[in-house]
Design a protein around this nucleic acid. Structure first.
Lengths: 99, 99
DNA sequence: TTAATAGTTCAATAATTATTAAACTATTTT
DNA sequence: AAAATAGTTTAATAATTATTGAACTATTAA
C-alpha cells in the first residue's frame, strides 16, 4: 500500500482545515476521536460504504487534522492535537467544545 | 429586492459555519471585516465579478457569520460577533486570531 | 425623468467534491 | 497456500458549489 501523505504542521492551511470540518460527517468523525481517542477506521458508526469513509479520512488526513498509525491490518486514527495547537493555538479546542 | 435571509443564532450550525470559512475567498472577507469593521460590498479588494462576490456574501450571510445592513443603495456587512460568541463561545476569536 | 450606482438574482456552464462498486494491497488466520 | 480481514485506490457517476454574463431592483444623482 502506498505512503499515506500527511502534511507537516508548517504545511497546515487554515481554510483547508476549516473546509475539512465543514462537513457533518467529518465533524462527527473528529468529535468521535476527540471523545474516544485513537481508534481504528471500523470503530466509526457511520452509515457509508468503506470507500466513502476512506475518502473522508483522506480529506481529514491531508488537511492535517488526523494522524494514521498502521498496526497490522488496521489503521489507527487520532487527532494531531499537539501540532494543531502549536500551529493554530486555541483553534481545535474552541471547535471541539462547540461540536 | 427580496428579503435577505439571516438565521437566528439558534439556527446556526457549526459545520455550515466552518464550511463557509473553509474557502480562501470567504476567509479573506471575514478577515477584512474583522480588521476593518463594518464595510460595504465594494470595499473588498477581491478580483471576482460582482455576482460571484455576491454569491460568497450570501454563503457567509446564510451561515450566520455576517449581518447585512441596508443603507441607501449600499449594503454594509459586519461580523455577527455577539451572536456567534453566545452560540459558539471562543470559536470566532480562535479562528480570527489564526487567519 | 433619465442615467448612474450598488448591489442581487437567474440561467448556463465549469469545477469540485461525494458516492458507489469493483479491484487492489497488505496482513493475519486457517 | 488459501481465505478472511481491514482498509485504499480507481473509475464512473451523482451531487454540490463556483463563476460568468445578462437581466433585474432599489436608490440616488444629474
Amino acid at each position: 500500500m502506498r505512503e499515506l501523505f500527511q502534511p507537516s504542521s508548517e504545511q497546515f492551511n487554515l481554510s483547508t482545515i476549516l473546509g475539512a470540518l465543514g462537513d457533518p460527517i467529518r465533524l462527527r468523525m473528529v468529535k468521535f476521536l476527540a471523545e474516544n481517542g485513537e481508534n481504528n477506521c471500523s470503530s466509526f458508526d457511520i452509515d457509508l460504504q468503506k470507500s466513502a469513509l476512506s475518502h473522508h479520512f483522506k480529506v481529514l488526513r491531508e488537511s492535517g487534522l488526523i494522524n494514521v498509525r498502521i498496526e497490522g491490518k488496521q489503521r489507527f486514527l487520532s487527532i494531531r492535537t499537539v501540532e494543531l495547537e502549536s500551529r493554530f493555538p486555541g483553534l481545535l479546542d474552541a471547535i471541539i467544545k462547540n461540536i
